[in-house]
């Protein structure tokens, strides 16, 4: 079945899902149960039940301090919950270290980008690939054992860099890239391992607003090529346009979920999350519809800005 059909069906299936926190999904890729994490008596995360549908873009939103990033850290093995279990694609992942979580096909990015600054862009990309015999200390000593795989990895890296328009920078140190480029690089690097689920932690944070459109485009591309996306965002504007499903967290708990349009109309969400500011436009389209064509130009400007700063 072509990827688009799978995606279309997965999105359509969501229509039948009840709009209640913890609703079961027809084809859940990630299922979390009773995940709790407290810091000094405060429950940072307290998720009863949550399912993430395969092949769609799910947004995890909530005000600052709602526990979104902590939830990410827990799911990906970067933090340990007090209690709770979760299953990814049929594999229980509770207590599994971060590296094995990533190997099982759930790859994440970070809110503060972790581009490996003193390595070139291409080296960053190569590092993302799986099953490299040359990463074993003893195999590494004999180049013929790993050179063929290295070539494959490099080809794949170049293809991805082209897609993310970073191919001209392949020999630059990642540390010399602009903030937006680093976000792109981190995303591209995550894709080197063909993950089933990409978890993006605030992909738009710290990026020049003019670049967000390009980033959003890459995220929808990801979905359309068959990768499931879960991303954290606290800015509703971004969420509305690209997500198929929205999960709202507040004070560590899932308070609502549903399609973006409905969730934003939900009075409970508005109260819990948007507070007094909801009278402003929840989805300012103007910024985004114009965006498409000004990408390259804006990026150049943003670059100039950053170098100055």
């Amino acid at each position: 079945m072509p990827a688009e059909d799978v995606v279309t069906r997965a999105r359509r299936d969501l229509h039948q899902v009840p709009r209640t926190p913890g609703a079961p999904k027809p084809d859940a890729l990630l299922v979390a149960d009773g995940v709790r994490r407290s810091f000094g008596g405060v429950n940072a995360v307290d998720v009863e039940h949550l399912e993430v549908q395969r092949h769609v873009i799910t947004a995890l939103i909530g005000p600052n301090g709602a526990g979104k990033t902590t939830f990410f850290n827990l799911m990906t093995g970067f933090d340990k919950p007090d209690t709770g279990t979760w299953v990814f694609d049929g594999t229980p992942l509770a207590g599994v270290p971060a590296s094995r979580v990533a190997k099982s096909g759930m790859v994440r990015t970070f809110q503060l980008t972790k581009a490996l600054a003193r390595m070139t862009v291409l080296e960053n990309m190569r590092l993302g690939a799986r099953e490299q015999p040359g990463e074993n200390l003893f195999t590494a000593l004999v180049k013929p054992l790993w050179a063929p795989r290295e070539r494959e990895v490099t080809e794949k890296a170049m293809a991805l860099l082209e897609r993310f328009k970073l191919d001209t920078k392949k020999d630059d140190f990642a540390g010399s890239l602009s903030g937006g480029q680093r976000k792109l690089l981190e995303m591209a690097r995550a894709l080197m391992s063909d993950p089933a689920l990409v978890m993006l932690d605030e992909p738009m944070a710290g990026v020049n607003p003019a670049l967000t459109q390009s980033l959003l485009g890459h995220i929808t591309d990801l979905r359309d090529s068959g990768t499931t996306v879960l991303f954290v965002e606290h800015d509703m504007h971004m969420v509305r346009h690209i997500s198929d499903w929205v999960v709202v967290m507040a004070q560590g708990q899932v308070v609502a979920e549903g399609p973006p349009g409905e969730v934003m109309a939900d009075q409970a969400v508005i109260d819990a999350y948007l507070g007094a500011h909801h009278d402003t436009d929840l989805g300012d389209d103007a910024l985004l519809t114009e965006g498409g064509t000004i990408d390259a130009e804006a990026e150049a400007e943003a670059d100039a800005e950053e170098t100055k700063a």
Partner: peptide, 30 residues
Amino acid sequence: WRLVRSPWGRVLRGIREDEDAVRALGKNVY
């Protein structure tokens, strides 16, 4: 010299830069 230019050395340099990033890419940093 051999190791620095191998994927093994690349993982090490990645760890030097940011071990969490390398962990997130599925390498057993430890």
